[in-house]
């Protein structure tokens, strides 16, 4: 029996084309510096933060939801771990686990509201975003907590066989999520439920449990991102990286995730994260502002959507 190839592949193909074009263009503009070892290293240090956060956003979007609370969760995890390591003088491991545990504690509330009370994800996570950020603010009183033990800084700044640690963490997260989505029951249910939750319910899928796990997973990945972030900055604060929130949604859609749920795969998302980071780094090398980069990200997304639409019309 033959296998069908979905038309949804086209988006990934377009994306790869855009990436190649951008890399060549920026490579020429920067006289090859973009592809030099230095800038590759800097990309590998910077990409993972947006990358892991985007991975956290991906599963909720596949179920047809969204998680606006990931940045707040990342910061909370970072703040708790930071307080643990500095003020309380806890061992690094304990502080890190404490941070992740608190992230998951709020995730339980979030998952409960969405899965069992059926609060629309966008509202539940909006409320929790503000709430969790508030908790971090109360804990830090708005100050920056800085000065972590050297061994903890390795997570954000060290290298393993020449590969930056953050990138290693990102790679492991991506691999974990990839296996979860493609090779487990949970992953299969996520896609099916994202397409039609009534049908999965009638087929005996425990929808609520799948949704609950989805939001637990997003908080867990957000927590990891928070740890990488504070290690990289050697500082923790209640409202770091808030501009990343909309970018994660953008990266997911650019990578082929259908915001209605049910479609989109991890490799596409990874490629889209790379596009965004390469553009940012290239612009950085050219001495252009990060704002121009963000404008360009928007334009790239709109461009991909428009091309997609034209191809779609051509087929129909």
């Amino acid at each position: 029996m033959k296998r069908a190839r979905g038309g949804r592949e086209t988006q990934s193909i377009i994306l790869v084309g855009v990436v190649t074009f951008l890399i060549v263009l920026l490579g020429m503009l920067t006289k090859g510096r973009l592809l030099g070892l230095d800038s590759l290293q800097s990309i590998a240090f910077q990409l993972p933060l947006l990358g892991i956060l985007t991975l956290a956003q991906m599963t909720p979007m596949l179920t047809g939801g969204i998680d606006l609370s990931i940045i707040a969760t990342a910061n909370l995890c970072g703040v708790i771990a930071a307080i643990g390591m500095t003020r309380s003088g806890l061992p690094i491991g304990v502080a890190v686990i404490l941070g992740l545990a608190l992230a998951l504690l709020f995730a339980i509330l979030k998952g409960f509201l969405i899965a069992w009370v059926s609060v629309p994800a966008i509202i539940a996570t909006l409320g929790l975003m503000i709430f969790i950020r508030g908790v971090s603010l109360v804990l830090t009183r708005g100050y920056v907590i800085a000065g972590f033990p050297g061994s903890f800084l390795f997570l954000g700044n060290g290298t393993l066989f020449g590969i930056p640690m953050p990138f290693v963490v990102f790679f492991l997260c991506a691999l974990f999520l990839y296996l979860l989505l493609t090779r487990t029951r949970f992953g299969t249910y996520v896609y099916l439920l994202g397409s039609n939750p009534t049908a999965t319910l009638f087929a005996g899928v425990n929808n609520a449990a799948v949704l609950f796990k989805t939001y637990l997973l997003s908080s867990f990945l957000a927590g990891i991102a928070g740890l990488v972030m504070i290690s990289r900055f050697n500082a923790a604060q209640a409202d770091y990286g808030e501009s990343y929130l909309l970018l994660t949604v953008l990266a997911c859609v650019l990578g082929g995730i259908d915001p209605g749920g049910g479609f989109g795969r991890l490799p596409g998302v990874v490629v889209s994260i790379i596009v965004l980071q390469v553009v940012a780094t290239g612009f950085n090398l050219l001495g252009l502002s990060s704002h121009l980069a963000s404008a360009l990200w928007g334009l790239i997304l709109l461009g991909v959507i428009a091309i997609n639409r034209m191809i779609g019309e051509g087929e129909a």
Partner: peptide, 30 residues
């Protein structure tokens, strides 16, 4: 854009948020 692309408006307007604001910051230098 919302009408022509038929993509969810949250995506379109997030993109335009970046475009409008990014370009303004570039031109105004903040």
């Amino acid at each position: 854009l919302v009408n022509r692309t038929r993509v969810h408006p949250v995506i379109i307007t997030i993109s335009n948020l970046n475009v409008f604001y990014g370009l303004l910051m570039v031109v105004s230098k903040g």
